[in-house]
Design a protein around this nucleic acid. Structure first.
Length: 420
RNA sequence: GUGGGUAUAGCUCAGUUGGUUAGAGCGCUAGGUUGUGGCCCUAGAGGUCAAGGGUUCAAAUCCCUUUAUUCACCCCA
């Protein structure tokens, strides 16, 4: 039977990988300028971390986790996201004793057992970051400024920042009862899902895509209009901060993050032209999470962006990605004796940091040059017995056809010093 | 879990109302008179027509089942 790649995964091949690397490097560079350090954590964690961190009632935990027992009988799970692990690490490594706030970024693959569709995979790449130990609105604004600048720098068009506040535990409890009251006499006309949501999670009623439910929910009271005074002030300060530094945003009262740990500020960067899965980056504040996972009460804010979706959006925006490296010079040869000289030159150049190609398939000179052309080499030189005897060879500029006779001894120096 | 589309060479795709050795372009390998690439020409390799079953004298083509893939719902990066 033919071996095939697992559903929802993909190989990232040469030609495509350069695009990913470009974004990953740009991300790391920017994050480090904002004072973040990289963190790495395991691909799998004990299942309990995600159950408690992401939340037992979320879709991620209920139906999307890659969970299995290891040989010691412990239940482990492939990470469906990064925040829970970062917080676990923060607690476990005593980072509450570090200079506050602690800023960490990560570049990971994540795993969710979902049905695949455009922009959604079972293994996918996330670039994310967390700030732990700041409850100030300045943290929120700084994160949003950084992300806005990052996307701007990548030349992305049609990406819109949507923000909302979903309050804290206290205002949310109060809001839920307000919401239930509003919907109490309307449940008969709602879809089956919404009837269930009415009981389990009334806030989700606002998210339904069914026409009649949208109609019913249209005039429902919004959480944003029912925040407690502290949350209201925090949100006001965040938007005021964004206004001050001219970051455009849309207040989207319908953003309800799907992970349990979010409080107060939540946001998404939504792209045009990506299909149904159009959220490129999402995040928010999670002030209670550290405590919930057994640490001391520590506020936090973070985000994650989907690398696949981001690269796709950049392609849609016509971004000119860097292409793969091409050889500076191709060293051709005729005969065994010449090969040994050519090999020495090639390897010397390579060790001096120059990308140099040489045929290792015993091909004819014609095939060698064809190879050089396919690899898009800038220069070529051919060594044969005559050249070796006279210590002279012709270097050719493959683009301009110009040729130049040089001594074989000088080839390495000429290429390194770029005087060809 | 639910619904729709698709499945022929490494890639993009032709393939007539069922008709005999299944095609093209690109790519790959080699050659075009023993030492100079691209363009052009020639040749070669590479297909259980997704798999299994059925109808038929005859199936890539029609029917059924399965699988894969893709888009969408739910939800999310």
């Amino acid at each position: 039977m033919k071996i095939s790649i697992p559903k929802g995964t993909k190989d990232i091949l040469p030609g495509e990988i350069e695009k990913y690397k470009y974004v990953q490097t740009a991300f790391a560079d920017m994050l480090e300028n904002f004072g973040y350090s990289q963190i790495r954590f395991p691909v799998f964690e004990y299942t309990e971390l995600f159950q408690r961190g992401v939340g037992d009632t979320t879709d991620i935990v209920q139906k999307e986790m890659y969970t299995f027992n290891d040989k010691g009988g412990r239940s482990v799970t492939l990470r469906p996201e990064g925040t829970a692990s970062v917080v676990r690490s923060y607690i476990e490594n005593g980072m509450s004793s570090n200079t506050q706030p602690v800023k960490l970024y990560y570049d990971i693959t994540a795993y969710r057992y979902e049905n695949v569709q455009k922009g959604r995979y079972r293994e996918f790449n996330q670039l994310g970051a967390e700030i732990l130990g700041s409850d100030s609105c300045n943290a929120d604004v700084e994160v949003l400024f950084m992300l806005y600048s990052f996307f701007n720098g990548l030349g992305i068009q049609g990406l819109h920042l949507n923000i909302n506040s979903i309050g804290c535990k206290t205002c949310r409890a109060e809001y839920n009862s307000i919401l239930k009251e509003y919907f109490s006499d309307k449940t008969d006309n709602m879809c089956a899902d919404c009837k269930r949501r009415y009981i389990t999670n009334p806030m989700r009623l606002l998210d339904c895509k069914v026409d009649k439910c949208i109609e019913i929910a249209k005039d429902a009271p919004m959480l944003l209009d029912n925040l407690c005074d502290n949350c209201k002030e925090h949100f006001y300060n965040v938007t005021a901060g964004l206004d001050e530094i001219n970051i455009p945003y849309i207040i989207n009262k319908r953003i309800v993050r799907g992970l349990d740990y979010y409080v107060r500020t939540v946001f998404e960067f939504i792209a045009e032209g990506l299909g149904a899965q159009n959220t490129v980056c999402a995040g928010g504040r999670y002030d209670g999470l550290v405590e919930q996972l057994g640490g001391t009460d520590t506020p936090g804010i973070g985000f994650a962006m989907g690398l696949e979706r981001l690269v796709e959006t950049m392609k849609n925006s016509g971004f000119k990605f860097p292409t793969a490296k091409t050889p500076v010079i191709f060293i051709g040869y005729i005969g065994e004796k010449a090969f040994k000289v050519a090999r020495t030159i090639a390897n010397e150049l390579r060790l001096k940091g120059i990308y140099c190609e040489i045929d290792i398939n015993d091909r004819s000179l014609k095939a060698q040059l064809k190879f050089a052309d396919k690899k898009d080499a800038l220069y070529s030189v051919v060594l044969g017995d005559a050249e070796i005897d006279t210590n002279k060879a012709i270097i050719k500029n493959m683009k301009t056809q110009e040729t130049k006779e040089v001594s074989i001894d000088s080839i390495v120096r000429r290429v390194v010093e770029n005087i060809i």
